[in-house]
Design a binder for these strands. Structure first.
Length: 579
RNA sequence: GGGGUCGUAGUUCAGUUGGUUAGAACGCCGGCCUGUCACGCCGGAGGUCGAGGGUUCGAGUCCCUUCGGCCCCGCCA
């Protein structure tokens, strides 16, 4: 029987009753009843029950877990009352008449089941066994379907998939580059791309019009649960487009892929201004599935009598949020919340409780009962509620309350199960001032176009200029972002000037792009979507490692291969890195 | 670069104020068992307590150093 005709284990059903079939797969579990042996045979599609009886019992006794076998047998219905409703193949079984053990397996280092309790480092060391677990296999299958649907969608939209170089040129600004030494040019280096940004813009100059790439990107920065040093973007760029076009295009894609995981995509995706997002949620990627919105407390602090608040309001911001029913929190719990907020730079967390006995707060002594009550009133806190406040620089207040908001929602189960919120965040600042370096940096990248109505202030008040940039956010996770690019060479020069990049430096770094723009550049823009994060959210996982076949640990090593590793001194010599 | 947390049998964990022979479950091995699907029952093997050093009559337990996993801040869209 040809390999392509042989049925998958998980797809043998009543339809096949009475047929003689050949099956291959891994032995999952043997149930030896003495004169009768059951075993599960599995492949990536699922499992089917094998029966060894009469003359086959002796053969069945040889099997052990994870052996790879080929069997022939007849598909027959299970005995009366013995069907397993939990299995797609639960109504049938294979009465084995021929068994061939193709390879034997040693006892695996952990149980290859969905509910394995193996630690993640063990799973990563034996990733091929981990991926054999049905949940992990399902993640890879889902990822494949998303990618396949993405390619289908963009093909229908007449986008062209183009591969861009992996060995490219280091582009400063942004993340740290991975470098690859050149053998032919000793002392010179390629860089791995942080994204195909410049190439996809050049493809617009080339007249391609609509570009898509499932692109691998590399950034040499510290890792997180949702950050790997190499990751995959759905990279998109198109000519003669405006923001609306990109929104429609992206929503159209999501409307096609999210249903693959049973997640409906809304007819309309709300838009949220960046500054409003920060004021209301303390984050530019807010999770809008729950409330706990930030409230303004600054004006109340002026002359309130509590020195700490007066100072904070005078030099920065004071904001808070109300946890309904939070007055029941213990002193210990409040201390823990205070500790939670400290890594974000908050000096402390000030709390106000409204109880049936009045107001309780460490600030009550300084503010008085009525003064403290005014804070609760302003925040809209009712009886039994808790107001948590942070004062300090705007950055610290937003960062700490934004994180606290999410933490409280998780801790108190305020996130509705099964709900998913999508939104566009727009109106980002174009530039961000760096105190350390005493210069502006591009929030997105140096080719992002300013809003036309703000562009006039590029020289007079650069910090106030907003960008034609946008992010798409799902459940508090940034799925991707993009912008309409600068296509006017004069505007690009002004942008470089605002960034403190001189003519000479700009030519040295991005000369090829500027040169290209001299020969007829169409207005263009695009977006890059984080495929790993999209798959992670669709699969309902907390880490992108679960949707990447061979991920790195948080220290950037691969426990399976041992990368990164030392190399032969001869290799270094060849590269001119060692004498 | 910084903070937190974990590391004991193949695996996941327990291990008291420092005290004799480091336990449990699952897995594995052997035996019995003809309708199991987390099969069941009986028996057995299996340990550099992450590594190195120190304190102590005595260290899985206390101290120092170090390695590794995970989470977070910084960093990174």
């Amino acid at each position: 029987m040809s390999a392509w005709e042989r049925p998958w284990c998980g797809r043998v059903t009543r339809e096949n009753l009475g047929q003689k079939v050949e099956l291959v797969g891994w032995v999952r579990r043997r149930r030896d009843l003495g004169g009768l042996i059951f075993a599960d045979l599995r492949d990536r599609t699922g499992l089917v029950q094998l029966v060894f009886e009469d003359e086959m019992v002796a053969a069945g006794e040889q099997l052990s877990g994870q052996d790879v076998i080929r069997v022939r047998g007849v598909v027959r219905p299970r005995a009366e009352g013995q069907a397993n409703p939990n299995l797609a193949t639960g109504e049938i079984e294979i009465r084995v008449s021929e068994l061939e053990i193709l390879t034997e397996s040693e006892t695996p280092p952990f149980v290859i089941e969905d509910d394995t309790n193996a630690s993640e480092d063990l799973r990563l060391t034996y990733r091929y066994l981990d991926l054999r677990r049905p949940v992990m296999t399902a993640n890879l299958v889902l990822r494949h379907r998303i990618v396949a649907e993405t390619r289908r969608y963009f093909d229908e939209m007449e986008f062209i998939e183009v591969e861009t170089p992996i060995l490219t040129r280091s582009t400063p600004e942004g993340a740290r580059d991975f470098l690859v030494p050149s053998r032919l040019h000793k002392g010179a280096f390629y860089a791995l791309p942080q994204s195909p940004q410049l190439f996809k813009q050049l493809l617009q100059v080339a007249g391609l019009g609509r570009y898509i790439q499932i692109a691998r990107c590399f950034r040499d920065e510290d890792l997180r649960a949702d950050r790997q040093p190499e990751f995959t973007q759905i990279d998109v760029e198109a000519s003669f487009v405006r923001e609306e076009d990109i929104f429609v295009l992206t929503e159209g894609l999501f409307r096609r892929i999210f249903p693959l995981a049973g997640i409906p995509f809304p007819a309309k995706v709300p838009r949220l201004d960046y500054f409003e997002a920060m004021e209301r949620f303390g984050s530019d990627r807010p999770d809008t599935r729950f409330g706990l919105e930030l409230v303004e407390l600054g004006p109340l602090c002026e002359g309130c009598g509590f020195q700490v608040l007066e100072n904070a309001a005078a030099t920065g911001r004071v904001k808070g949020l109300v946890l309904p029913g939070g007055a029941a929190l213990s002193r210990k719990q409040l201390d823990q919340l205070s500790d939670f907020v400290k890594p974000y730079g908050a000096a402390g967390l000030l709390w106000f409780k409204r109880t049936e006995n009045g107001v309780a707060s460490p600030a009550k002594k300084a503010l008085g009962e009525a003064g403290a009550a005014r804070f609760l009133d302003a925040a809209g806190a009712g009886e039994g509620d808790l107001l948590l406040a942070v004062g300090g620089s705007e950055k610290v207040v937003f960062a700490s309350l934004g994180a606290l908001r999410v933490e409280l929602a998780k801790e108190h189960g305020l996130i509705p199960g099964g709900r998913h919120d999508f939104l566009w965040v727009t109106g980002f600042p174009l530039l961000e001032w760096s105190e350390e370096d005493g210069r502006f940096y591009a929030c997105h990248h140096p080719f992002t176009s300013p809003l036309p109505e703000d562009a006039g202030r590029l020289e007079s008040d650069p910090g106030s200029v907003r960008a034609r940039a946008y992010d798409i956010v799902m459940d508090g996770v940034e799925l991707g972002g993009g912008s309409i690019r600068i296509h006017d060479p004069a505007l690009q020069r002004r942008m470089f000037r605002a960034l403190g990049i001189g003519e000479e430096e700009a030519n040295a770094r991005f000369g090829f792009l500027l040169e290209a723009f001299r020969y007829g550049v169409p207005p263009h823009g695009g977006i890059a979507l984080g495929l790993d994060r999209i798959v992670m959210l669709m699969a309902g996982r907390d880490s992108i490692r679960d949707v990447i076949a061979f991920p790195k640990t948080t220290s950037g090593s691969c426990l399976l291969t041992g990368a990164p590793a030392g190399v032969d001194p001869a290799q270094l010599k060849e590269l001119g890195l060692k004498p």
